[in-house]
Simulated scan of single mutants.
Amino acid sequence: MTHKDDRQEFEDHKKAMSLALGRDSEAFNEALELLLTLNKYDYSYLWSWMGVPIIQMPADVMATQEVIWNTKPDIIIETGVARGGSVIFMASLLAAMGNDAGKVIGVDLDIRAHNRETIENHVMAKRITLIEGGSVDDDVLAKVKAEIPPGARVMVVLDSDHSYEHVLAECRAYGPLVTEGCYLVVADTLIGHLTEELALKRSQVWYKGNEPLHAVNVYLEENDRFEMDAVLNGKLVLASSPNGYCRCIKA
């Protein structure tokens, strides 16, 4: 029996449904209500990657995987290392894709000794460089730039201090490092949909106005190198970072 090649049809349907979902505010609000319920159980803290806590929603992990596969970065910079699962996750994708020179640079103000030990003893350690210090400090930025070889394709994930001023400062500092066709990912933009009363339980509490979504919107207004990926962001319900995936469209 011969079957028609429906691969493009399948992809076209995915795109149409993702865009339609992105326009469905009722579905988004229902998902938000469910996430607020799940937050009572520290839902984003329940997952790990290759044995290390990743502290992300499964949908965001899948979205980041799609971006890395589709854009093939050589260098991925992440601000906010936490327990290390995310840098290990991205390093493992570079390894699986056969990018032997690929590297993840993890930047954090405070890389705790036990978390550093976990990362540096992991099978993916040789693909990870850790830099400790304030992500927008001049000396830290100089160290990050020194790790980027000429001609490398660069992707950036911002997932540290989620206050508006800090995220906007990170966008301005790290956005210029992103190469054309690659992504700037601003994490936890979901906070931009929460009032003070609905703020997620965290070590610090942010809510609408003082959060990453506000920062990325301001950055996109002042910078014409990026656009939000409507298809990818459209399907990011039950996720931490809707409208946080921005594609670099200019060199």
Rank of each mutant, 00 (worst) to 15 (best):
H3K: 13
D5Q: 14
Q8I: 11
E9S: 15
E9G: 14
S18H: 14
L19P: 02
L19N: 02
A20C: 13
R23H: 09
D24Y: 05
E26S: 07
E26K: 14
A27G: 04
A27N: 06
F28T: 07
N29L: 11
L34D: 12
L36D: 07
L38M: 13
D42C: 15
L46A: 15
M50D: 11
V52F: 03
V52S: 01
P53C: 06
I54E: 07
M57W: 09
P58A: 13
A59M: 15
A63Y: 04
N70I: 04
N70F: 14
K72I: 13
P73F: 06
I76A: 02
I77M: 03
I77V: 08
T79H: 03
G85W: 06
S86L: 11
V87A: 03
I88M: 04
I88P: 01
F89E: 05
A95L: 15
A95Y: 12
A96G: 06
D100Y: 08
V104E: 03
I105W: 00
G106V: 07
G106W: 03
V107R: 00
V107W: 00
I111P: 04
R112W: 09
N115T: 12
N115W: 10
N115V: 10
E120H: 11
H122A: 08
H122M: 10
V123S: 08
K126A: 08
R127T: 12
R127M: 08
R127E: 12
L130M: 10
G133M: 02
D138V: 10
A142V: 09
V144M: 01
I148Y: 11
G151H: 11
G151Y: 07
A152H: 02
V156T: 03
V156C: 06
R172W: 04
G175H: 00
V178Y: 07
E180V: 15
C182T: 15
Y183S: 01
L184K: 04
D188Y: 05
T189M: 01
G192W: 00
L194F: 03
E197P: 07
E197G: 11
L200N: 04
L200C: 09
R202E: 06
R202I: 10
S203G: 11
Q204V: 10
V205Y: 07
K208G: 08
A215S: 04
Y219F: 09
L220D: 11
E222K: 07
E222V: 06
E222T: 06
R225Q: 09
D229K: 01
D229V: 05
A230Q: 13
A230C: 15
V237M: 13
S241P: 00
N243P: 13
Y245T: 00
C246Y: 03
C248M: 04
C248K: 05
C248H: 05
